[in-house]
Amino acid sequence: MILEAAMLQVKPGMDEAFIESFKKASPIIASMKGYIAHELQKCMEEDHKYLLLVKWETLEDHTVGFRGSEQYAEWKKLLHHYYDPFPTVEHFVSVPVGERGSE
């Protein structure tokens, strides 16, 4: 499993509209091959800052499948105009360290 993480800086005054657009965009990403789950978190310390986490089966499901799809064009149309600066997207894999500090 791959975890995609994007820190989203939403332009001031656009939070409510962004959240409504994100609700409309969520079924788009959820319909993609390799999609597992996603969540949007709002920062408690900084207004207009959100963290998007998306779980994918493979890196290519995101970078090739989703980003190369017609559905991505709709995702962009719904969401990309809210960001300033445009977010950097990073991908992570789990590091096995044992359970509950047992190792």
Rank of each mutant, 00 (worst) to 15 (best):
L79E: 00
H81D: 13
A5C: 13
E99D: 03
V93A: 06
M7S: 07
L8R: 01
I36F: 07
D15R: 10
L59Y: 15
G68N: 12
E74M: 03
V89D: 08
M14E: 07
H81W: 14
S94W: 10
L51R: 03
S102Y: 14
Y72R: 01
I28R: 01
A6E: 04
L51E: 04
P87C: 02
K23P: 00
G101E: 08
D84G: 06
P12Q: 09
H80D: 11
M1G: 00
F86Q: 05
Q71C: 03
H48W: 08
T58Y: 07
S31Q: 02
L52P: 13
V54M: 03
H38N: 14
V89C: 08
G68Y: 09
S31E: 07
K33I: 09
S69H: 08
K55I: 04
R67S: 12
V54K: 10
Q71T: 07
H81I: 05
T58H: 15
L40W: 03
A37M: 08
T63I: 14
S31V: 05
Y83S: 00
H80V: 08
V89R: 15
S21A: 15
W75C: 13
G65H: 14
Y35E: 06
L78Q: 01
F18L: 11
V10E: 05
H38K: 11
I28M: 08
G13N: 06
H81Y: 14
G68A: 09
Q41R: 11
S26P: 00
Y72P: 01
T88A: 11
W75M: 07
L51K: 02
K76H: 00
V95E: 04
E20K: 13
E57A: 11
F86G: 00
I19W: 06
P12E: 08
E16A: 13
F18A: 00
T88V: 11
H80T: 10
E4W: 05
L52G: 10
P87A: 04
L53G: 01
A73T: 14
Y72H: 10
Q41K: 10
G98V: 04
F22D: 02
A25T: 09
Q9S: 15
E16P: 03
K42I: 01
S102N: 12
A17I: 03
I29P: 03
K24S: 02
E74D: 13
